[in-house]
Structures are given as structure tokens and as C-alpha cells.
Design a protein around this nucleic acid. Structure first.
Length: 211
DNA sequence: CATATGATCCGCT
DNA sequence: GCGGATCATATGA
């Protein structure tokens, strides 16, 4: 079957529409050495305008300017001084919305991923925002890259059968928005972090003890 | 200029 | 379950 790259119009919607729609789609990375890496998106988070948790909330800076650019481009930033996180920019130009890709299921180029990650277990290659950028060799150099017309990184349409789970975003204290989306039952979904266990509003994650 | 803080990961207990 | 690693960015003196 022919692989179809997601068009600009796919991203030109609100982040809360794009986020669940990205689940099951395949992220493809063409590496400098000519090899390919591909992974299926299994967990995302939406960050919209008027959203205090969004990097765009306080206006445009040199760090987040890609978020205010055209949809379908990449916003990549460094967090905790050592981990990159990748986002797909959404909405109209100037809005400042994006979807954070939190976890993927490795499909292609696993050996390269293992080498870049320094880990053997497939489960540890892409199950986390910092992990997947390392596995796919995405750094700040890719900030602003075009997912639609660019040549090294894009998203291909794929089918999905799993149900979608929703919950509060990881590391975000605000509990009103359930803007984290994942493929229910998929083992590559990151464990995330339970919110500040201040008593109210536990995330109520799926029970995953023994299996 | 100085400092606090992350949309995290990993190793150790 | 907990804390250290490690630094760009934002904010205040």
C-alpha cells in the first residue's frame, strides 16, 4: 500500500483536534546516513492558545517562535538541560498551538535507534518525549522544519484500531483540561508521572500491575 | 548580572 | 520511590 504524507490541512486545526488524530499515524525520519527510522505515534498532548501550560502563553520568544509559524512545522525545544521534545505546530499562523509527541511504537530502523539510545529493549526506545527524539535523532536543529514539504521528517497516514484514552497532561498542574491522548492498551505509552499527589484530582491511570 | 525552574530520564535504594 | 544530571530560558535585582 502506498504511504501518504499528512497534508498541511491536517495540521491547520485546533491542537485538541489534531492531537487524537495523530494517534496511529507513522512518524518517519530520513537520516543523514541514508537510513530510515519510523515509529507509530501512540501518545500525544495538546497545547493551545489561552493555555497557561503552553510555551506560547506568554507570547513569542526566540525559543518558541516556531509555534507561531505555519501549521505542519516542527517545534523542538530542550528541557531539563538534556532532553529534546518535539511538537507539531497547529492552527492558523500566529495562534501559537502545538501537539507534543510523547511516545511512539518503533517500526523501522530499530538498530539505529538502539545505537542512539544506548538501550537494547524495544520498550525503552521511544516510550517518552525525550526518548523518542533521541531515537529519531531530532534536536534543536530540526526546530521549524516542515513536516509537509521537508525532506527529512514527516508523518504518514496509517490505520488505527485501538480506542483512545484521555487524561490530564503530564507535568502540568492544571487539571481542568484532559488534553493528553493515548492508544488504550498500547504498551509503548509512557508511564508519565502522576500529578502532584496533593490529594485531589489523581490522574486515574489504567491499572498496570501484573499482566 | 544572578538565580529559579522545567511538557525528563536514569540509576540507585 | 527518590534525587541527581545539566542548561536554555525567563524573570527579577
Amino acid at each position: 500500500m502506498k504511504s501518504v504524507r499528512l497534508p498541511r490541512s491536517f495540521y491547520a486545526r485546533t491542537a485538541t483536534e489534531v492531537a487524537p488524530a495523530l494517534l496511529g499515524q507513522v512518524l518517519v525520519r530520513a537520516l543523514p546516513d541514508g537510513t530510515r527510522a519510523a515509529a507509530r505515534i501512540v501518545e500525544v498532548e495538546a497545547y493551545g492558545p489561552d493555555d497557561p501550560a503552553s510555551h506560547a502563553f506568554r507570547g513569542m520568544t526566540s525559543r518558541n517562535q516556531a509555534m507561531f509559524g505555519p501549521p505542519g512545522h516542527l517545534y523542538v525545544y530542550l528541557t531539563y538541560g538534556m532532553h529534546f521534545c518535539m511538537n507539531a505546530v497547529c492552527g492558523p499562523v500566529g495562534e501559537g498551538a502545538a501537539v507534543l509527541v510523547r511516545a511512539c511504537e518503533p517500526l523501522e530502523g530499530l538498530e539505529g535507534m538502539r545505537a542512539r539510545r544506548g538501550r537494547e529493549r524495544t520498550l525503552e526506545l521511544c516510550s517518552g518525549p525525550g526518548r523518542l527524539t533521541q531515537a529519531l535523532d531530532v534536536t534543536r536543529s530540526e526546530d521549524g522544519a516542515d513536516l509537509v514539504d521537508g525532506g527529512s521528517l514527516w508523518v504518514e497516514r496509517a490505520s488505527r484500531s485501538e480506542a483512545i484514552g484521555t487524561g490530564i497532561r503530564v507535568g502540568v498542574r492544571e487539571t481542568a483540561r484532559s488534553w493528553r491522548f493515548w492508544l488504550e492498551g498500547n504498551p509503548f505509552v509512557s508511564r508519565g508521572r502522576p500529578g502532584p499527589a496533593t490529594g485531589k484530582g489523581r490522574p486515574s491511570r489504567v491499572r498496570s500491575t501484573t499482566r
